[in-house]
């Protein structure tokens, strides 16, 4: 390993200076990129889920082509990895992980949470998924099968959770408000 004598903050300072000098990335461009990146958030994915629950043709589009479904909600997807959406069903629960690094559907959910990037999450998801879900307070019925999704390559995956009981007659905005980040990765399940 090189630069062992430098702290990472110093490395960033050096990179910042050199990339600006070389015209590769200036401060204004970096600041603008931060603003754009901060704008992506789980509310976007939640709006997609709520629409899928209330608009059957949209649900069909979302399962067939997540990228188009995101774009239909005004979420910028150009130049980003394709989005795949996996639907939970009464007897089947999906759980997304990236055991190799931290691939995450950032375009629709924002930055990956801390736990998603942790070694413990990455190790457990493929080997003891039911126990892992309990760490998030999620107890699946024994008859519900778990399908783990190891996100290894060019797609990014999100989960379409099941619409919870007790939400009959709710509009999309009210439904979106109960959908959390973890529901769309499969560590939690939305409730009314």
């Amino acid at each position: 390993m090189i630069l062992t004598d430098l702290d990472e903050h110093d490395i960033l300072k050096g990179l910042r200076t050199l990339l600006a000098q070389k015209g590769i990335a200036g401060p204004a461009e970096i600041a603008e990129r931060i603003v754009q990146t901060d704008a992506a958030n789980p509310g976007q994915g939640a709006a997609m889920v709520a629409r899928a629950w209330t608009d059957p043709p949209y649900r069909a589009l979302m399962l067939a082509d997540g990228t188009k479904a995101a774009e239909a909600m005004g979420i910028p997807m150009r130049g980003l990895p394709p989005l795949g959406v996996l639907e939970n069903q009464p007897g089947l629960h999906h759980l997304v992980v990236c055991t190799l690094c931290s691939c995450y559907p950032r375009a629709v959910l924002g930055y990956p949470p801390f736990w998603y990037k942790s070694a413990a999450y990455r190790a457990k998801a493929v080997r003891s998924p039911r126990a892992l879900l309990r760490e998030f307070g999620t107890e699946l019925a024994a008859e519900v099968a778990i399908r783990v999704v190891d996100s290894t390559a060019d797609y990014r995956w999100m989960v379409l959770p099941q619409r919870p009981a007790g939400t009959e007659g709710w509009d999309a905005a009210r439904l979106a408000a109960i959908v959390r980040e973890g529901d769309m990765i499969g560590v939690t399940i939305p409730s009314a």
């Binding site: 996996l86 493929v126 099968a145 399908r147 783990v148 190891d150 290894t152 797609y155």
Partner: peptide, 18 residues
Amino acid sequence: DLRRIWPEADADLLVELF
């Protein structure tokens, strides 16, 4: 089938492979 890799896994797996 993850159980064929780890008997305790109790799940199946979807993964992208080239």
